[in-house]
Amino acid sequence: MGHHHTSNHIIYGLYTDETDLLKAVQKAKDDHLDIFNVYTPFPVHGLDPILGLAESRLHITGFVYGLLGTLTAFLGMSWIFTRDWPVIFGGKPYWPVPSFIPITFELTVLFAAIGMVVTFYTVSGMGPGITNPILDPRITDDKFCIAFNETTATDGDINKFKSFFQETGASEVNSKEIDA
């Protein structure tokens, strides 16, 4: 995608069942067709390996955010009770480590959850008020969609896409301009 294109021309086929979709994606991979994206109404298991999607690294960010929460809570409370304003509560030491465990745990969970959710929406280009192009409104209902980008495709490629959809049993084939 260069700077010249302000929009993509997408050709897409709709399937009525996830097993047809999985077979079609496998065939597209075997035929070396470059899939633009696959859209489904629910998470279809077994799709990621065929499509060649790398495992999400979201859980790694979750660990990092969680660690940040652990450190924030533990170091924060330690600093307050030993440096900023040391107070003896009920004869306990200035640095009562066991008392810090519950809040340290809670902030670990809180940071991990907020961090992961924010990261999820950010990297997925989603969020309050954000709109993304929708190829077909039935994708969130009962249609499974494979999309190819024909913006820079040759006539030969486009014919390949069309015959692919026909061979794999797509119930409909449509095309749409979407913002790049």
Binding site: N37, V38, Y39, D48, M126, P128, I130
Partner: peptide, 10 residues
């Protein structure tokens, strides 16, 4: 939130 149902998002 701009959900599309893309495989990567799922």
């Amino acid at each position: 939130f701009g959900w599309t149902g893309a495989a990567k998002h799922w």
